[in-house]
Simulated assay, not measured.
Amino acid sequence: MVIASETAAAFGASAELQRLLEVQMPYGKYAGRLIADLPGHYLGWFAREGFPRGELGRLLALMYEIDHNDLRALLFPLRQGR
């Protein structure tokens, strides 16, 4: 049996993954590039120097964890739906 909170958490996680394919980097060398398409070394720089506040920082931190753990394949099914 799936508990409602587990369903909500799974939906929230998938919504965050979807946002990685919608939100563009607003500034810097990679301005205009989707968060999901940022290179690992750039994400690593943010991890060392500090992520910005708000949604952008959350998404960059999430993408860093995905990249660092070699999980970019999680985004493939979401990209196919575009």
Score class of each variant (00 low, 15 high):
Met1Ser: 10
Ile3His: 15
Ile3Asp: 14
Ala4Pro: 12
Ser5Phe: 09
Glu6Thr: 11
Glu6Lys: 14
Glu6Cys: 09
Thr7Asp: 10
Ala8Tyr: 01
Ala8Asp: 06
Ala8Gln: 07
Ala8Phe: 11
Ala10Leu: 10
Ala10Arg: 07
Ala10Asn: 11
Phe11Ala: 15
Phe11Glu: 15
Phe11Trp: 14
Gly12Glu: 13
Gly12Asn: 14
Ala13Tyr: 10
Ser14Cys: 12
Ser14Glu: 13
Ala15Asn: 12
Ala15Cys: 03
Glu16Gly: 01
Arg19Ile: 03
Arg19Trp: 09
Leu20Lys: 05
Leu21Met: 13
Leu21Cys: 12
Glu22Thr: 12
Glu22His: 14
Val23Pro: 03
Met25Leu: 12
Pro26His: 13
Gly28Trp: 06
Gly28Pro: 06
Lys29Trp: 00
Lys29Gln: 06
Tyr30Ile: 02
Gly32Arg: 13
Gly32Glu: 14
Gly32Ala: 08
Leu34Asp: 14
Leu34Lys: 14
Ile35Thr: 08
Ile35Tyr: 03
Asp37Leu: 02
Leu38Trp: 04
Pro39Lys: 08
Gly40Ser: 12
Gly40Lys: 13
His41Asp: 15
Tyr42Trp: 11
Tyr42Gly: 03
Leu43Ala: 09
Gly44Thr: 06
Gly44Trp: 04
Trp45Ser: 10
Trp45Leu: 02
Phe46Val: 02
Ala47Arg: 09
Ala47His: 11
Glu49Arg: 05
Glu49Ser: 05
Glu49Gln: 03
Phe51Arg: 01
Pro52Gln: 12
Pro52Asn: 09
Arg53Met: 12
Arg53Trp: 01
Gly54Gln: 03
Gly54Lys: 03
Gly54Leu: 01
Gly54Ser: 07
Glu55Ser: 08
Leu56Thr: 02
Leu56Trp: 13
Leu56Gly: 02
Gly57Val: 00
Arg58Lys: 06
Leu59Phe: 11
Leu60Tyr: 13
Leu60Glu: 08
Ala61Arg: 15
Leu62Lys: 11
Leu62Ala: 11
Leu62Met: 11
Tyr64Cys: 12
Tyr64Lys: 07
Tyr64Trp: 15
Glu65Tyr: 02
Glu65Arg: 06
Glu65Pro: 00
Asp67Lys: 03
His68Thr: 00
His68Ser: 04
Asp70Asn: 09
Leu71Arg: 10
Arg72Gly: 05
Arg72Lys: 14
Ala73Arg: 13
Ala73Gly: 12
Phe76Val: 10
Phe76Pro: 01
Phe76Glu: 11
Phe76Cys: 01
Pro77Gln: 04
Pro77Asp: 05
Leu78Tyr: 01
Leu78His: 04
Gln80Val: 01
Gln80Arg: 06
Gly81Phe: 03
Arg82Ser: 07
Arg82Asn: 08
